[in-house]
C-alpha cells in the first residue's frame, strides 16, 4: 500500500528529472561532451526561481529568467572550452564551482522556502496529479521546441558538430559557436527543471543538484535502451529519456519502500550508472569475440549500432 501511494510522487519527480535528462541529452549525446556544469545549473534554476518568487515576481517570468541564467552558465562552460582551450570536463567543473558561489549570492542564504500555501507556484508535492500534468506539459513543450530547432539549418549543424567536427568545419560550420550555443540551450533547460523542482519540493537549497548528472545519465541510459529498440529517431529518444527519469524514480521509491538506508542511495545510483556505462565495453571485450569469428560483418554492425546509441 505504501509504495502504491508513493507512485504519483515518483512519477512527478521522474518527469521533472526527465526534463533535466533532456537537457543533459543535448550535451552528452548530441554534442558528445560530458558537461559537469549541470550539477550547478539545476541549482541555479532553483535559486533564481526561489529568490525571485519570494520577492513576488510572476512565476512564468521566474522560469524564463531561470532559463536565461542556466543558459549563461552553459555559455561560460562553452567559452572556457572553445575560447580558452580548457578540456570540456574541466570547463564544466570550473563553472560548477563558480556557480556554487553565484547560487549562494542569488539565494542570499542556504535555504529559501517557497511554500505553495504562500506563493502561487505551478506545482507542488501536495498535489501530485497537478504536478504530473504541469511537468508533463513542460517536457512536451520542450521536446516539440527541440524537435523544431534541431531540424533548422542551425540545428542540423549543431548535430553535425557533435557527430563529426572535421566535416563540420570543412562545410563552413563554426563549431566553437555551436558548442557554446548547445551548452547554453542544454543548461537553460536544466535550469528550468531546477525551477520546477524547487516549486515541487517547496524550497530551494544551495546543495541541490549534487550528483544530478548521475541521475540524468541513468534516465538517458534507461530511456534509450528502450526507445532505440522502438524507433531510433530524435523525438522518440527524448520521450524515452523522460520515461527513463520516471522509471528511475519509481525504482528509487521502491527501494526506499523496501527500507533501504537512504544515505546509500547516491552511491547505489552511481554504481548502477557505472555498470550500465561499462556494459557496451564489457560486451565488446568479453562476449563479442566468438561472434566476430563467425560473422565479422554482423559484429561490426552491432558495434556501430551501439556507438549510435
Amino acid at each position: 500500500m505504501g509504495f502504491i501511494n508513493a507512485i504519483p510522487g515518483a512519477v512527478a519527480q521522474g518527469l521533472i528529472w526527465g526534463l533535466f535528462a533532456i537537457g543533459l541529452y543535448i550535451s552528452y549525446k548530441i554534442l558528445d561532451i560530458a558537461d559537469l556544469t549541470v550539477d550547478g545549473s539545476i541549482c541555479t534554476g532553483a535559486c533564481v526561481l526561489a529568490a525571485l518568487m519570494s520577492r513576488g515576481v510572476n512565476v512564468y517570468l521566474c522560469i524564463l529568467i531561470a532559463f536565461l541564467a542556466g543558459a549563461a552558465a552553459g555559455a561560460v562552460t562553452g567559452l572556457f572550452h572553445t575560447a580558452m582551450g580548457i578540456p570540456p570536463i574541466l570547463s564544466g567543473i570550473l563553472t560548477q564551482l563558480i556557480l556554487w558561489s553565484v547560487n549562494l549570492k542569488i539565494l542570499g542564504k542556504a535555504n529559501v522556502s517557497i511554500s505553495s500555501r504562500k506563493y502561487p507556484v505551478l506545482l507542488s508535492s501536495i498535489d501530485n496529479l497537478g504536478a504530473i500534468i504541469v511537468s508533463a506539459v513542460f517536457c512536451a513543450l520542450i521536446i516539440v521546441g527541440l524537435f523544431l530547432f534541431f531540424y533548422t539549418e542551425i540545428g542540423l549543424t549543431l548535430k553535425s558538430t557533435g557527430d563529426n567536427e572535421a566535416m563540420s568545419r570543412a562545410q563552413g560550420v563554426n563549431v566553437s559557436f555551436n558548442k557554446v550555443l548547445g551548452l547554453a540551450i542544454s543548461n537553460g533547460i536544466i535550469a528550468v527543471s531546477g525551477a520546477l523542482l524547487a516549486q515541487y519540493q517547496g524550497f530551494a537549497d544551495i546543495n541541490m543538484g549534487r550528483g544530478a548528472i548521475v541521475i540524468g545519465l541513468a534516465a538517458i541510459i534507461i530511456g534509450l535502451s528502450v526507445s532505440l529498440k522502438i524507433k531510433p529517431n530524435f523525438v522518440v529518444s527524448l520521450i524515452g529519456v523522460v520515461g527513463g527519469g520516471i522509471v528511475y524514480y519509481l525504482v528509487y521509491s521502491f527501494v526506499i519502500f523496501l527500507g533501504l538506508d537512504t544515505d546509500l542511495l547516491k552511491m547505489l545510483s552511481a554504481i548502477v550508472v557505472a555498470i550500465f556505462l561499462a556494459l557496451p565495453y564489457l560486451k565488446a571485450k568479453y562476449f563479442n569475440k566468438a561472434k566476430a569469428k563467425d560473422k565479422p560483418a554482423v559484429a561490426k554492425n552491432q558495434a556501430g549500432g551501439e556507438e549510435n546509441a
Binding site: K159, S160, D163, N164, A166, M167, S168, G172, V173, N308
Partner: peptide, 20 residues
C-alpha cells in the same frame, strides 16, 4: 570517415554542405 557525419541522414549531410 572524416568527410561525413555518420549518425545523420545522407540528405542531412548534403543539406549541411549545400549551405556552405
Amino acid at each position: 570517415m572524416k568527410g561525413t557525419a555518420p549518425d545523420m541522414e545522407i540528405a542531412e549531410n548534403l543539406s549541411i554542405a549545400d549551405r556552405r
